[in-house]
Nucleic acid binder design. Sequence first.
DNA 1: TTGAAAGCGCTAACAT
DNA 2: ATGTTAGCGCTTTCAA
Lengths: 382, 382
Amino acid sequence: MSIVFLRCLLTASKTYSTLFVNVHVNVNGVSIMTNSRSESVTIVQVAQEAGVSAQTVSRVLNNRPDVSAATRERILGVIERLNYKPNAIARGLVQRKTHSLGVIAAGLEKYGPLRTVIGIEQETRALGYSLLLSLIPDDATENQVVEALEHLLARQVDGVLWSAPEIGPNRAWLDSLLGRLTVPTVFMSMHPHPAVTVIDTDNRMGGNLATVHLTEQGCRRVAHICGPQSQWSALQRRLGWEDALRAVGQTPDAALLVEGDWTAASGYAAIRELIERVPDLDGVFAGNDQMGLGALLAASELGIRIPEQLAIIGYDNIPEAAYMQPPLSSIRQHLHDSGAIAVRELIRQITLQRAGNNSGEGQTILVEPDLIVRRSSLYAKP
Amino acid sequence: MSIVFLRCLLTASKTYSTLFVNVHVNVNGVSIMTNSRSESVTIVQVAQEAGVSAQTVSRVLNNRPDVSAATRERILGVIERLNYKPNAIARGLVQRKTHSLGVIAAGLEKYGPLRTVIGIEQETRALGYSLLLSLIPDDATENQVVEALEHLLARQVDGVLWSAPEIGPNRAWLDSLLGRLTVPTVFMSMHPHPAVTVIDTDNRMGGNLATVHLTEQGCRRVAHICGPQSQWSALQRRLGWEDALRAVGQTPDAALLVEGDWTAASGYAAIRELIERVPDLDGVFAGNDQMGLGALLAASELGIRIPEQLAIIGYDNIPEAAYMQPPLSSIRQHLHDSGAIAVRELIRQITLQRAGNNSGEGQTILVEPDLIVRRSSLYAKP
DNA sequence: TTGAAAGCGCTAACAT
DNA sequence: ATGTTAGCGCTTTCAA
C-alpha cells in the first residue's frame, strides 16, 4: 500500500495533470484479492439451477401471481443462494423503460439549487428510480445545454428534471430545447409556458413577503439587492419587491436597486454603493442570504447599526442565517418539497404517456414560501 | 395552462400527500403538441436508409478505420438527417460496459462533501461517462448503504465512488462492504486500507496547520470544536490539533475538546461550554466554518472580542468565511481536485481491470490543504 | 471494405 | 402454472 501526498499548484492551470506531485511514503506489499473477475449470475443460470425456465424466474422477479407457491419458494432460494441480481440494463432495453430520471442542474454551490436537487434525489430513489446527474454552468451556452441533454437521452432516461435557471427571456432558445425533449420533462424554474410543466417556489410572493415585512417595520426607503436579472427567480423576487413598494404608494426607484451575483462579495459591494446613493436608506431586501451576509459585514464596517438604523432581510433561510450578526431574517422556501413534487409529477406524466394519455398541456405549480423573522429586520423607527 | 399554488403544512408530516393544496388560478386551453410519440431511430433504419448493413453503421459510430471514406460520408449524412442517436443502454448490454459511474454520497448540505461531488461530476462528464447519484444519510445504517450500492450495481455502473464518511472504525462493516464491491471502487474518506484506493485531503495536516497557526499567534490555551468523531475526517483533524499541541510541549486536555455536529448551532453551544470550562481560553480551532460561525456569534454575545481576546480559525474556507464578523481564517482544501483525481483513478482502474491487470492493491492519495489567514485568528497576545 | 449470424440478459406474447 | 419463441438495439466474430 502506498500513500501519496499531493500539493496543488494553484498558480498553474486547474487540471490534474498540472498538479505537483510529492511522494512521501512507504510502499508495502500487502495484496488482498478483492473481487475476482467473477462473471455475474444471469437469469438463465438461476432457471437451470431451479429446474425451471427463465420465464418463470422472470415471473418471480416481477412478482407475478401466476407462479405456484412451491416454485416461487424454490426460485427465491436459488436467487438468494447464487446472490443473483437482475440486470437493470437488460431489463431497460427490452421494456424500453430504464426507471431512471435525468436531472440537469446548475449552481449547486448555492443553497436553493442544491436543496432542490437533494429533494429530487430522495424522492427519485424513494420511488424506485435512479438519478443521472448532469451539471451545467449557470451561464451555459446552448451547446453545453444540448450536449448535457443529449447525454441523458442517449442513456434512455424516462424523464428529465430541468433544474437550471432559465437563461434570459429567450423564447427561441426554449423552443429549440422543447423540440429535443423527447421524454416528459418538468422544469424547476421557468416562466409559465403553456406547453411545459413548471414546479417552482413562488419567488414573487417571497419578494413581496420580505419587502412588506420591512415596510411594516416602518422602513420608508427599502432597497433591493437583486440576483442576476437574467434568472427567472431573481427577476420574480424583484417584482415582488416592486409590488410591495407600490402597495405603500411608492414608485420603485432605480437608485434603490443593485444587481448582485448571489455572492456575499456582491452583497458587500452593493451596500457600499447604496449607502452612497441613498443617504436615508433604512431597509434592504437582499435576494439571498449570502448577499445578506455581505450586507451585514459592510454595514458593520461602515458603522451602521443593524437593525436599529438599517433593517436587512435575506432570502433562502440558510441554516447559517440564524448565526449571523445579527441573526438574519429571511424567506424560507420549501425546496426539498418542490423537488419531491416535481419528481412525482414527472413520474405521473411518464405513466400517463405510456398509457397513451399524452395531454401535452402544461401546468404550473408554485409552492408558497414563508417569512422567518430574526433580529436583523427589527428596525427601530426613529 | 393551469397555475396551482401550494402552501406547505409544516406541522403535518413531510410527505407530498399531506401538503395543503390551494388552487388559485386560471386554466387556459392552450395545447401545444410537444413531442409526438415518435419511435426513436435505430441503427437498422440508418443502415437501410444508407443502403448498408447495421455493422457498417456501427463501424462509423465507433470510428473504426475499416470503412471507405465514401461510405462513411454517406452514413454520417443519414445519421445527421434522421437525427439518429445511439442507444447507450443497448450498447452497454452488449459491451458489458455502460460508461457510467455511481457515486454514493452523504452530507451534501455541507460544503466539503458537496464540492467533492461537484468535482466528481465534472470530471466524470469530461471523460465521457455518466454519473448516477445515490445519497445516503450521514448516519446511514448498513442496510441503507447496501441498498444504495446494490441499486448502483444493478444499473451496471462501471465503477463506484464512495464519497460518504466512513462510519466509525468498524472494520467488520467495511469487510462486508468490500465483499459486495464487484466493480472498481475509490473511497473519498477512509483510513488507509491495503485493499482499497483512497483519495482524500490530508485532514490531519489541515488540523495541524490550523492549530500551529494559533500557537504561533501566541495562543497558549487552544481548544478544538471537533466534528463527529465517528467520521474519519473529523477524527484526523482532531489528531492534527493534538499533534500541534504536543509540538509546543502541551498534553491535549480533554477540557479543551468539544464535539459538535458540523452545524453553526453546535459551534455556538461549544463556545458557551468552553468559556465556562476554560477561563483562560485564548484560541479555538473549529472543525469547519459553520461551527466557526456559531463560535463567532457566541463570543460576540458573551462580549469576547475576536481576535483580540480569542483567536478563532475554521476549516473548509467556504466562500462566506471572508464575510463573517470578523472574517474567519480557515483551511482551504482542494476538494474539487480530489474529486477529479478520484474519477481519473477510478477510470484507470476500470481500464486496467478490463485489460486483466487487476493488481488488487490499494493506494492512498492525500491532497494537501493550505492555511488562509483572515482577521479572526490575529490574536493579540496580552 | 463489407455483411451475416449470433447473442448480451431480459421480458412480452403467445403457447400449452 | 409453466414453457417456447422472438426480439429490444447494439456489437462481436467470423466469413466473404
